[in-house]
Amino acid sequence: MIWPTLVFAILGISLYVYNLKQPGNEATKAIAVGMKIMVRTLPVILVAFLLAGMIEVIIPRAFIENWLSTEAGLRGAFFGTLGGMLLVIGPYAAFPIIASIYAAGGGFATVVTLIFGWCALGLHRIPFESGLLGVRFTLVRLSITFPFVFMAGIIAHAIDLIIH
């Protein structure tokens, strides 16, 4: 965790210096914005970590091996795509849960499709999208995106097989 923390620290400081040069005290405003979001989301992150801990110890090994592991093959990619779509929660909550599935033995294809399925197909966005841009617009996007998410799972599975 040291390297990503360092990268973020450097990135954050660089952006801070950039914002410092902007008119209107933007840099201080940005710190306040970041901290405000953090305080607002910390309870969600905490509960997500608690839930992720339980998921990690409760998912039966046989289920992981049959449906979500590398050995599950493309089944893992398919269920990952569907699972990602159904994770109707924010990134602070979804990512620890996905990490727990990976820690419990989930295959790379499952994890990639869970993340990408959540990002691209997540049902939590549907009310905004269909409300503002229409149901047909949303249906077109979902039906074109679904095969691409599954395709990402196929590529991930191939990489997993090569690595192992």
Partner: peptide, 18 residues
Amino acid sequence: TIPLIVAAFFVIGQLRVT
């Protein structure tokens, strides 16, 4: 993960304004 989460939110805040 705590230091990383704090750093991540610092970056998120800066990006939102930039």
